[in-house]
Computed example of a mutant assay.
Amino acid sequence: MTATTIRGRFQWTVVVPIVAVLLLAATWQSHEAWPVLVLIGVALVASVISAVHHAEVVAHKVGEPFGSLILAVAVTVIEVGLIVMLMTSGGEGASTYARDTVFAAVMITVNGILGISLLVGAAKHHLVSFNAAGTGSMLSTVIAVAAVCLVLPSFTTSGAGREYSPSQLAFAALASLALYGAFVFTQTVRHRDFFLPVTSDKYGRATGLVDEDEDGHADPPSSREAWISAVLMVLSLVAVVGLAKLLSPTIEDGVKGLGFPYAVVGVVIALLVLAPESTAAIRNAARDRVQISLNLALGSAMASIGLTIPTIAVAMIWLDGPLVLGLEPTQMVLLAITVAVATLTVVPGRAKALAGFVHLVLLATFLFLSMQP
């Protein structure tokens, strides 16, 4: 990447957050006209891309696996903001927004991002290698936190329907935070080397860690650039949450107008916030750094549940209405199949393109059944 390209991108991502915040302030009171809504939509997408770009700059400065962690948390902040804003706007499907968005994020990350990363990496390098110990610990944590937050509410008897009682919700929130905290400690302190890119032999077997000093990547940004990106990332996140609030009635009306179930709103939210991260994962997979792609995929899945559910639990103190977290039968079957396939994918520590294709078919199945349940 040339210096000119870096400066051009840097200037573009500096302008977007500032313009987006100004647009948010200018349209907060009046935004019903279609041209204004289109402008808000463009600014929203650009702000998401800008937020993740600046998170990536900060991530490059701090290195792996901290970088993947920062990206995952940044995306989750966007997701939580969108969910809360949609829930505060009310509507027929407000009680299931959190469940549908979190479940969609899990399916998109574990099947979509993971699948496309394996497919791209294996198509270019024939076999891709990763650390099964680190990736397996991520997957097991995702499974545990998904079971506590999304599966068990469908079987408990204290709450109404597929809801947790207040005490159960508090326990699930604390359990999620504990699991996420334990994973972060493992990833960044105790077993950091399990989450770094690996080298491999001609059979795809891992042989050691990638030498980060000789990987041909651009030098890390300066401390000044990293701090500027950190500020701009926060500014972008503020713009994303605010613009999403303005656009949420349009999203709901569009889904309703197409005759799709309200669960599709959650899918739209998840697709929106995860699109830039998907791009980052694909770029790393193409460079034969699939471990980073898997860190992004499974780390985002974990953060989507482990941070979103506790935040929503706290928000329910002042939000009216029920909070439905339990999955429907079809969703539980899809989750179970995904868990089984992902386990078989991760255990060998290497994968062919077929593994990625299988995960993408599962994602397509989820998207189709979301629109046609």
Rank of each mutant, 00 (worst) to 15 (best):
L258P: 11
G159A: 10
H53I: 06
A280F: 14
L179E: 00
Q11Y: 08
E212V: 02
R99D: 07
T5S: 09
H54K: 09
L127M: 06
M316Y: 08
L344C: 06
A280P: 01
G134N: 02
A206Y: 02
K124A: 08
P65M: 02
A74P: 08
G81V: 13
A275S: 14
A170N: 04
M332H: 06
V57H: 04
K202P: 04
A160K: 12
S229C: 08
G8Q: 13
S223A: 15
E56N: 12
D211R: 11
T88K: 11
V19S: 12
V240Y: 15
D320G: 04
M302Q: 03
P17T: 10
T135V: 14
L344W: 08
D215G: 10
D320S: 12
L247D: 01
F10M: 01
A342D: 12
T279P: 00
A122M: 12
V346T: 06
F171E: 05
T109G: 05
S129I: 12
T207R: 12
P329W: 07
V189E: 03
A286F: 03
S129F: 10
R224K: 11
V142S: 05
L325W: 04
V210C: 05
R205A: 08
S154E: 08
G161H: 13
P249W: 09
W28A: 09
G181C: 00
L360V: 13
V57I: 14
V80M: 09
V361I: 15
S200M: 05
P17R: 07
F155T: 14
A146V: 04
E328L: 15
V62I: 14
G121H: 00
E92K: 07
A218C: 00
P35M: 11
L325V: 07
D213P: 01
M233E: 01
A147R: 00
D213I: 01
Y180V: 09
G41C: 09
A226Q: 03
P249A: 13
S47F: 14
S236W: 08
A285I: 13
V75K: 04
D320F: 02
M138V: 01
G204F: 01
G93Y: 15
T308A: 10
P17W: 11
L367A: 11
V361R: 01
I113C: 11
C149M: 05
P220T: 09
V361W: 02
A218K: 00
A132G: 09
V333L: 10
Q331K: 05
L369P: 04
L354A: 10
G63P: 03
M316Q: 15
A340S: 03
R287L: 12
V19H: 08
V264C: 05
A94N: 14
R192E: 01
T188P: 02
T135W: 02
D193G: 01
T343I: 09
I116P: 03
S30C: 03
V42H: 08
I143N: 10
F368D: 01
V184R: 00
A244C: 13
S50Y: 12
S293Y: 06
S293K: 05
R192L: 01
Q331H: 08
E212Y: 07
T250P: 03
I143W: 11
P220G: 06
G257N: 07
L327Q: 00
V62K: 04
G266M: 11
F155P: 10
G254M: 07
A20H: 03
A286D: 06
